[in-house]
Simulated assay, not measured.
Amino acid sequence: MAALTGTQKAAMLLLQLGRDRAARVMAQLEVHEIEELTAEILRLERVDQRLADEVLEEFHAVSVVGPGVGGGMGLAQHLLVASLGAEQAAGVMERLQTSLQGQPFEFLQHADARQVVSLLSSEHPQAIALVLAHLKPDHAGAIIAGLDPELQADIAHRIALMERASPDVVQMIAENLQRKASSVLASSELAAVGGVQPLVEIINRADPSTEKVILEGLASRDEELAEEVRSRMFVFADITLLEDRAMQLVLRQVETAQLSVALKGVSDGVRETVMRNLSERARENLVEEIELLGPVRLSLVEDARAAIVQVIRRLEESGQIVIRRDSEDELVA
């Protein structure tokens, strides 16, 4: 920390506030201050998480006790309210305080997945779901893959429905696991955990067989929720990840009228993926159809795209195509 300048610390703090909030804070600064901070932000391509946490801790310490006369929590809150408004300022302070308190299950983050599975095996499914929702998605994916198939679906369902957890409950579970693991780490709270998106990220990082078991088990419990998870796992823009042969198979099952609506407002990459997998005549017909459409309601565009995604998922489930996730290795013939 001693090696960092005040401007560097301010830049790191702004990066952790998020783009919108950081922009509003910078709007309150002098031009030369904005220029200095911008220069530092450009230099900060990668920041060690521990160093970033130390900057947050220092900011928190200064905001609570103050560096001297005139500082303290009151001043920090006043500056944030002036920059962001009362509601957003409260959110920033809450986020900072939560971040500074650390992760309650950090002692599991670098533990071997098999050891964590053994540690969690006697815990209630809700407790296991709570723990996995706090861990990094790739680590949580490896852990859930080691659980019994029936338990995987149950835990997936619980993670998806989880929204907020009582800090006292989180602390109690963390302390209990720490004692069992013979680890020493101060536990803390992370109030907002779980939900559909964390579950999607976990499943995306699990192996294909685990993904299949979880989705099937989830569907047997809550088909609507399972469908929401599936829809988030592959969106229309992801067709750029399909191999050409797979894309051609998909296009053979989609009507030109539906495809023309789905392509309204898409990125150049998505449009090029579709066009290069059509015959010259089909491509000309599609371009003509799109031009004749004119403006189309967004809801109709979304419906058309959703219908095509369903075609893709059916083809994947039947084994006719393979969807390569963005982070996965290339397939080898």
Rank of each mutant, 00 (worst) to 15 (best):
160 A>E: 07
181 A>D: 10
187 S>T: 15
156 A>K: 10
164 R>V: 14
198 P>W: 00
154 D>G: 10
236 F>G: 09
230 R>G: 09
253 Q>R: 07
189 E>K: 03
152 Q>R: 04
201 E>A: 13
220 S>F: 04
235 V>Q: 11
237 A>V: 11
160 A>H: 08
212 K>Y: 09
229 V>L: 08
228 E>G: 06
248 Q>P: 00
168 D>L: 05
224 E>I: 09
177 L>S: 04
203 I>W: 03
241 L>K: 09
187 S>D: 06
158 R>F: 13
149 P>L: 03
151 L>F: 03
162 M>F: 03
221 R>P: 04
240 T>Y: 00
150 E>K: 07
190 L>N: 07
202 I>V: 10
253 Q>Y: 06
198 P>S: 00
150 E>R: 08
224 E>G: 05
174 A>Q: 02
186 A>R: 13
249 L>W: 02
217 G>C: 10
248 Q>W: 04
248 Q>K: 12
157 H>Q: 09
248 Q>V: 07
213 V>M: 02
223 E>C: 05
241 L>E: 11
223 E>Y: 09
188 S>P: 00
235 V>K: 10
242 L>P: 01
172 M>Y: 08
220 S>Y: 05
197 Q>M: 14
247 M>T: 05
183 S>D: 12
254 V>P: 00
256 T>K: 06
210 T>Q: 01
239 I>V: 12
212 K>R: 14
183 S>P: 03
220 S>I: 02
199 L>F: 11
161 L>A: 12
161 L>W: 10
223 E>A: 13
171 Q>T: 14
159 I>D: 03
209 S>Y: 05
154 D>P: 04
203 I>Q: 01
215 L>V: 15
230 R>P: 09
148 D>V: 08
214 I>Y: 05
241 L>D: 13
170 V>H: 05
233 M>S: 03
161 L>D: 07
147 L>A: 10
238 D>Y: 07
154 D>V: 10
201 E>W: 06
200 V>E: 00
163 E>I: 14
164 R>Y: 12
